[in-house]
Amino acid sequence: MELDKIEKLLEKYFDATTTVAEEEILREYFSNENIPAHLEQYAPMFQYFSFAKEERFTKQLPLKTRNTFYKWASVAAVAVFMIGFYFYDPSPEPVSLADQYTEEEIASAQEALALLAMNFNKGTEQLYHLEEFERNTNKFLTKE
């Protein structure tokens, strides 16, 4: 009867549904020496858990940190960043076209833009004819 109970508790343990009391029953059972052969493989695991429960950390922990250099370095870095952010001027001085390009390049660009504007105006004249056509067809379709 007890063996069936232990097997059910093991099944619940591996499904992660046991309570703390049930786990304590398993630890006590596997701390005994007369364990059935098919359950002996679980004995070292539960014996380790019992041993690990008794372990304590005994080293002294330093309460004061010794890395004051890093603290002051980070403060200095933030200060330098803030000063740089305050004096940063994101807008460059405006540059005239005469400073960047030669007179010949400017004249060539003006000629190309004039040609583009002329061709663009030809295309817009055709749109005027389309608008007139649409207006007349709408008169006949809506019968105004």
Rank of each mutant, 00 (worst) to 15 (best):
3 L>P: 01
3 L>A: 02
6 I>D: 01
6 I>Y: 01
9 L>N: 00
11 E>H: 15
16 A>H: 09
17 T>R: 11
19 T>E: 01
19 T>M: 05
22 E>R: 01
23 E>M: 02
23 E>P: 00
24 E>P: 01
28 E>T: 07
28 E>N: 10
30 F>V: 00
31 S>I: 06
32 N>P: 03
32 N>C: 09
33 E>V: 08
34 N>I: 10
35 I>C: 03
35 I>F: 04
36 P>K: 06
38 H>A: 08
39 L>T: 02
39 L>W: 01
42 Y>L: 03
47 Q>S: 06
49 F>D: 04
50 S>V: 09
52 A>C: 03
52 A>T: 00
53 K>I: 00
54 E>Q: 11
54 E>K: 14
54 E>D: 11
58 T>I: 12
59 K>D: 08
61 L>Y: 12
63 L>R: 13
63 L>M: 13
64 K>Y: 14
64 K>L: 14
65 T>W: 11
65 T>S: 15
66 R>K: 13
66 R>I: 10
69 F>E: 08
70 Y>H: 12
72 W>R: 12
72 W>E: 13
73 A>T: 07
73 A>L: 10
76 A>M: 10
82 M>T: 09
84 G>I: 06
85 F>M: 12
86 Y>R: 12
87 F>N: 12
88 Y>P: 00
91 S>M: 14
92 P>M: 02
95 V>C: 02
95 V>Y: 04
96 S>Y: 04
97 L>G: 01
98 A>S: 07
99 D>G: 02
99 D>H: 07
100 Q>W: 10
103 E>H: 05
104 E>Y: 04
106 I>R: 01
106 I>V: 04
107 A>Y: 02
109 A>T: 00
112 A>R: 04
114 A>R: 03
116 L>Q: 08
118 M>Q: 11
118 M>S: 08
118 M>Y: 08
119 N>L: 09
120 F>D: 02
121 N>F: 09
123 G>M: 06
124 T>W: 07
127 L>T: 07
128 Y>G: 06
128 Y>T: 07
132 E>Q: 14
135 R>K: 15
136 N>K: 15
136 N>P: 03
137 T>A: 12
141 L>R: 15
141 L>P: 03
